[in-house]
Each structure stands twice: as structure tokens, then as C-alpha cells.
Design a binder for these strands. Structure first.
Lengths: 240, 240
DNA sequence: TGCCGTATGTTGGCTGCTGCACAGACTCCG
DNA sequence: CGGAGTCTGTGCAGCAGCCAACATACGGCA
């Protein structure tokens, strides 16, 4: 995860969509303060109670935030992709993680140290405004997710999750095992196996040994509950 | 809900515990900017998409924030009691509610207008720090709640919820119907009826027609899942 | 070639919660 | 006093997801 490159290469790898909401001048200021890193599957970027050493803006990587519960698998309550940032709590003046931060999608990301973030926040009011709004979106999405897990069945939730991953990663194929999907939805792998099997029969997706391909996105949107779209609209309405 | 009183009477009614974390001088400055209101059961203090007209610091009232889901009862995802504040998103520069805000426990509260809050935030850096930390605690508690609803059964979750209400209200008896508890946990009233019946048999609680009395708090703590305590520790660790 | 680890598919019994329906009890009110 | 509204207790069929166990398939490696 430490193979660094110059920020100049960002142009060829795409960029972080959250930062895209900044005006060009501000964005370039932030980008200049970042370094590019390759994140490998399984890398641990933070542990509960530990101080944060870096904040991350994923480009085509995905980072999950997991909460531990006694006698259960860890639950991946949120994920951070190119639409987000890992370490927002620093903007609130809190410098310790409270969740496990694990890379669940290998790829590139931008990162900076907390001290650098603090400096940028002071220099760029627009960055602060952006991160505040992002924090608000996270809270709204979390409440929606809570309602969704309370009421909706595994299959419709799975469809929503796949759509969200599809948005984050920006490609039709991505690596995601059934076990991991089970951790994300808080259900056993068997439940994922069944639901995903049905989707595969319906030609909505194809997967094999951890590589998922979205075949029919409109069909998948049809199979998902409204919660996915609500989450998207929240993001677009406040940040887009 | 519009029977106003002078802030001077706060002394006799107790106060908001979140504001207690401020130093005396700052706290009095904030209190002087507030007015005292009586909130009645069922009062609606905010609707999704509407602008916020007041922020509230409950004293012995409880305000629920509910999310609507198609084909389901509203789910009370969070509640705000004397340990919290309704309208924190203003501190992030967001001025619209995104949830239904309904009074579920009648009582008194302090309130101020958004413009007043903005003024106080500018004048008192400590208030800003406090609200930022509170926002972070809310997020952490929400992730814990998500894990809890994913994994834990109704009875242990009910115990935790009763304990939290007990903390918030500060008295052993409070008004809370089974229907409302069902909305809070996202289950049918029958589920609450069963679980509460067992607690009543075990002499942990007594209730009758919406009035719940905590008889054996240690016993109830024993019956609850660890999530309740984790939520408390989060609050105490960051704000206490 | 054979072995091991990982990922996926399937089965059967069990439990907890759901949906629906109804009955008893208390309160307010005309 | 009687009726309407609210709150609570119960009963039963149905199902979604749980637990445990086992079978298959693929890839890497010695």
C-alpha cells in the first residue's frame, strides 16, 4: 500500500468525486496536499480507539467501516468509495477512529495527514462547508439504512448494495465475495447465495469466485428497494 | 406548547445535560439566549424537507426523529432527551430537517431560533466544539444501533431502549405505549407486548396503559444487550 | 499429480417475527 | 349509563432467516 506516485497521475486514473464538488482552484489546492497510494485488499487503515494517521479520498478503491459485536461477525455499517472520504470526524475535531477501517476494494486513493487536513480546512472555507455537508449526508444515509435493515428482506437490500458498489467503483465488474456481502448486510453467506442465485437466473448479474458483473442495471434497480435511490438523492441533493 | 416562562425557572426544573458540559460562563450565555417551552405529546417540531425554525434542548421532554418508509409504520430512528439537542445539523450549515420530529415525551425544553444559534456559535467556540462532538457521538451511536437491530432479538433491544429512556427522563415512571415502543424498535406491537410481559413477570418493570415504571434497573441492565452500555460509554467518553 | 485453501451451492430442522384477527380492560365523554 | 376510543393480551398460520453440516468447484503450490 505504500507505492506512492505523484499527484500528476490523477488525471489518468480519474479522481475523487467528493472533491469534484469544489471549485477548480480550491480542488487543486487540496489535491496538491495529497499523495496517491495503492490500497490492497485487506489493508487496515484504522482501528477503534486508535488515533487517525491519515485521511483517505478513494479514487477507485472501496473502504469499509466495520463495527464489532460480541458473538457475531463484524458488520460493515458504511463504506467509502470515490464519492466520499475516510476520516471525516477530523472535521469535527475528533481524532480517533471508532470503527475498523478495512480496504474491501483494491485500488488507488488520495491521502493526507490530519495536520495537513487541518491546515487545508483553515485555508479553504469551501472545503469545510463540503465536509460538513458530507457528514450530514452520512447521517441521513445511516438513518435510511437503519430503516431498510429493519423492514426489508435480504434480496432487495442486496440489489441496493450492488448498485451502490457499482456507482462507487464505476465499472461493471468488481471483486466482492458472498461472505463479504454477508458482512455488509449483516446476514449469513447462505442468504446472499440464495438471493444472488436468483439474480443470476434473472440475468441481472453474473458472478464467479468473487468477481461480480452487473449485466442489467435497470433490472437491478427494479429489484432494489427505494432506499437505494433515497440514499442517492440525499447525496445529490446536498452535495451535487 | 407556547406557554413560555423565563429562563430563571430553569433552576427548579433541572436543565439540559448536554449544555452542562459547557463552562458556567458559556452555559449562562447560551441559556440567556433560550426561551423555555412546554412540549405536549404529539407536537410536531419539524417535517422532512422543511426549514428548521427552532432548535431544542430538552429538559425532561423527549423528541423522536422518525423516518418514513413506504408500506411501513414510521420508524423512530433516534430520540433526543435531556442529554441532547434537536437541530444539530445547523452546526453543519444545513438548515432543513430530513426527518419527522415528534414529541414522544411531554415536558419542558429550551429552544432558540437558528439565527440565535449561529450567533452563539460565533461567539462561543466551546459551544461549537461541544456540538461537533455531539454530532460525532450521534453517528457512532447510530452505527451501533444498526448493528444491534441486525443481530439482536426484540427483548434485549427493548431492555436497552427502556434504560435509555430512563436515563433521558430521569424518573422511574414515564409515559410510553407499546405501540410507540414498537415504532422505536421497528417491530409490531405484539412483539413488545410479549417481551414486556416477560419483564413484568420478572418484576423488572411494571406498566399499565402506557405508564411504564422501572422496578429493577440492575435487572434490566442484565437483560439488555451490550449495545446500550456501548452507547452510553461513547457519550460519556466523548462528552463527559 | 495430489493436496489445501477459498468460494460457492444445497439441504433440513428450528426459531423469531410477521400478518391477521379478536377479546378484555380502562378512560373519556355525552 | 352506554358508547367510542385507546391500550393491552392471545392465538394461529406462514415464512424469512438462523444454525449446522455437507458437497462441489476452482486455483495455487509442492
Amino acid at each position: 500500500m505504500d507505492s506512492l506516485r505523484q499527484p500528476a497521475v490523477i488525471a489518468e486514473t480519474g479522481t475523487n468525486r467528493l472533491l469534484l464538488a469544489l471549485q477548480l482552484e480550491d480542488r487543486e489546492h487540496v489535491l496538491a496536499a495529497c499523495e496517491v497510494v495503492e490500497l490492497a485488499f485487506g489493508d487496515v487503515l484504522g482501528e477503534p480507539g486508535r488515533g487517525r494517521t491519515q485521511v483517505y479520498f478513494p479514487i477507485d478503491s472501496v473502504i469499509s467501516e466495520l463495527v464489532s459485536v460480541r458473538d457475531h461477525e463484524n458488520l460493515a455499517v458504511t463504506y467509502v468509495g470515490s464519492e466520499g472520504m475516510l476520516g471525516v470526524e477530523l472535521a469535527l475535531g475528533v481524532s480517533t477512529c471508532h470503527l475498523h477501517n478495512v480496504v474491501h476494494g483494491a485500488g488507488t486513493a488520495l491521502r493526507m495527514r490530519p495536520a495537513t487536513l487541518y491546515r487545508e480546512l483553515k485555508l479553504l472555507p469551501a472545503l469545510q462547508t463540503l465536509l460538513f455537508r458530507y457528514i450530514h449526508v452520512l447521517r441521513a444515509q445511516l438513518t435510511q439504512a437503519l430503516a431498510c435493515t429493519s423492514f426489508h428482506a435480504v434480496d432487495v437490500r442486496l440489489a441496493g448494495r450492488l448498485l451502490a458498489m457499482h456507482d462507487s467503483i464505476g465499472e461493471d465488474s468488481f471483486h466482492l465475495t458472498q461472505k463479504l456481502l454477508g458482512q455488509m448486510l449483516g446476514v449469513r453467506r447462505v442468504g446472499i447465495s440464495n438471493a444472488a442465485g436468483v439474480f443470476q437466473e434473472q440475468q441481472l448479474i453474473y458472478y464467479s469466485r468473487g468477481l461480480i458483473t452487473i449485466l442489467d442495471r435497470p433490472g437491478l434497480e427494479n429489484a432494489a428497494c427505494g432506499c437505494y435511490q433515497i440514499g442517492q438523492d440525499l447525496y445529490d441533493g446536498i452535495l451535487g
